[in-house]
Design a protein around this nucleic acid. Structure first.
Length: 273
DNA sequence: AAAAGATGGTGAC
DNA sequence: TCACCCTCTTTTG
């Protein structure tokens, strides 16, 4: 289950296996079958990501496969010798394969063949992505600085910042002692810059490791003399999905609430209103 | 066996 | 704000 770091890593994984190589394309699940037939046998030219959107490029004339994993989507990589190598599971929306590897896309919210112009339009709707070198945090600040909306809501709004999901939002706010309900317009430019720079530091680490680790060295289980614990999602975090558990820093019970339909977590001791 | 839940997003009101 | 989409895993009965 994906935040921006997952998608950028996927782009690299697709590139590593298939870039410049002719691929077989199929859609066992069926809803992408017509497009898969158009791509079948053509080389994958490029793969790139902006925010949580993945683009698999098949070159001029064919366009891009635009993938959004949503909440449930996943990609499984394997080799033809695997059990699933010869018999793709029926829920696979898109399989790309050559003689050395296959990639199975399952459960995406979106998988569609689009043009260059349509790709540009998708990217244009997104805010700056901390994982992209060309990202401009001022573009996000311009929106945040005049908004009465809670910073926690703004951080999940992909038009404002692209690629941040529920885990990074909870963790970055914790790491800077920011209360999630603080209205955007009450942040200072300096504080916004600290949040942004931290995302720029944290998210590439997530791309590298494939998990979200946000706990500073001085708060690790070893440093704090508590038993090592890795959360279900695979990383060591301060507050995400730790409702009612003691804060790693101040021991206050982590708070949870629903905000705009999503679970929110924060420490009432470390993140004062 | 059934239900709930999950790192997301859209479109209708 | 709600209903809905997509799939799989975990929890509940």
């Amino acid at each position: 289950m994906p935040e921006g770091h997952t998608i950028h890593r996927l782009a690299a994984d697709y590139r590593d296996r298939f870039a410049g190589r002719a691929v077989r394309a199929s859609s066992p699940q069926g809803t992408f079958a017509r497009s898969a037939a158009l791509l079948d046998g053509h080389p994958l030219c490029s793969a790139d990501a902006t925010g949580k959107h993945l683009f698999l490029g098949f070159g001029p004339g064919l366009g891009w496969v635009h993938v959004h994993l949503g909440l449930f989507g996943k990609v499984f990589f394997g080799t033809p010798g695997d059990p699933a190598g010869t018999a793709p599971p029926p829920t696979v929306r898109l399989r790309l394969a050559d003689e050395a590897a296959y990639a199975d896309l399952r459960g995406p919210t979106r998988c569609e063949l689009i043009t260059d112009a349509e790709k540009a339009a998708v990217v244009a709707r997104l805010g700056p992505d901390p994982l992209r070198a060309d990202a401009d945090p001022q573009r996000a600040w311009a929106r945040i600085a005049r908004s009465r909306t809670a910073i926690a809501t703004l951080l999940l709004d992909q038009k404002i910042v692209a690629g941040v999901g529920n885990v990074y939002r909870a963790e970055v706010l914790f790491r800077h002692g920011v209360h999630p309900y603080l209205p955007g317009r009450e942040l200072t430019p300096t504080l916004w810059r600290r949040l942004w720079d931290d995302l720029v530091a944290l998210m590439p680490e997530g791309v590298r490791t494939g998990r979200i680790d946000t706990v500073r060295p001085e708060h690790t289980p070893e440093a704090m003399g508590r038993p090592p614990r890795v959360d279900d999602h695979g990383g060591e975090v301060y507050v995400y999905r730790r409702a009612a558990l003691p804060c790693h820093v101040c021991a206050a019970p982590v708070q949870t609430a629903e905000l705009a339909g999503r679970n929110l977590f924060w420490c009432p001791g470390c993140q004062k209103p």
